[in-house]
Simulated assay, not measured.
Amino acid sequence: MKSGAQRRAEILHRRGVRRTAERSDAVKDQALRAAKERAALLKNQVVVNVDKLRPTNSFGTPDFVARGFYADRPFNCKTCASPQVWTATQQRWWYEIAQGDVWTVAVLCRPCRRRERERRNDAREVHLAGLAKKASKR
């Protein structure tokens, strides 16, 4: 015949074994879920590397960080109003490589961006030529 202390020890041991098995099952389920999520990433989705993002002092989290991947994002160009798509790879370049602010999004299509860049450069050249002409008169 076993004492109450021995019986309690056996019960606690069995509970411990059961908890360990449940934990390992939970860990396996979590790993399986993560693998399924990774496999579910479509070819137009790119995984976010949070360590490479520029630091931000915001209390919020951008949707792509919460999601864990960049997804193609449709938008209309601000200048010509044509429908465009900001691809996941372009977003990754902007946020992780170019260190753009995580709260910014694309608003201009490529041709309009190129046109705006050329306009700015031309205006800068005109301005610098005017400064040079003014300095030469002195």
Rank of each mutant, 00 (worst) to 15 (best):
W86P: 00
V105S: 11
C80V: 09
Q84C: 14
W94E: 12
W94V: 03
Q84I: 05
C80T: 06
P74C: 01
F75T: 01
D101P: 07
I97V: 08
E96W: 05
S82T: 13
G100R: 03
T104D: 10
V102W: 07
G100I: 01
W94M: 14
I97C: 09
F75K: 01
T89K: 02
I97K: 09
V105I: 11
R92L: 12
T104G: 14
C80W: 02
Q84D: 08
P74T: 00
Q91M: 15
W94Y: 14
V85A: 08
C80Y: 05
F75P: 00
K78E: 11
G100M: 08
N76K: 07
V102S: 02
Y95E: 04
P74N: 02
Q84G: 02
C80I: 02
V105F: 14
T87S: 06
S82M: 10
Q99H: 12
N76E: 05
R73D: 12
A98P: 01
T104Y: 11
W94G: 05
T87M: 00
T79H: 11
W103P: 00
N76I: 00
W103E: 07
T104V: 15
R73E: 15
E96I: 13
K78L: 15
C80L: 03
W94N: 12
W103K: 05
A81D: 01
D101E: 06
P83Q: 14
W103N: 15
R73F: 14
N76W: 02
T89Y: 03
W86G: 05
A88I: 00
R92C: 09
K78C: 07
Q90N: 13
G100W: 07
I97F: 06
V105Y: 15
C80E: 06
V105E: 15
V102L: 06
Q90Y: 04
W86M: 11
I97N: 03
V102P: 02
T79I: 11
P74Y: 02
C77P: 14
W86Y: 14
A98D: 04
C80H: 05
Q90M: 13
Q99C: 13
Q90T: 07
V85D: 01
W86R: 08
Q84R: 07
R73P: 02
C77M: 10
T87C: 00
S82P: 05
Y95H: 12
Q84Y: 03
Y95A: 07
G100A: 11
A81Q: 15
F75L: 01
I97Y: 05
F75G: 01
V105T: 14
P74L: 01
R92T: 10
P74Q: 04
N76Q: 11
W103V: 06
T89E: 03
I97M: 04
P83N: 12
W94F: 15
C77F: 12
F75Q: 00
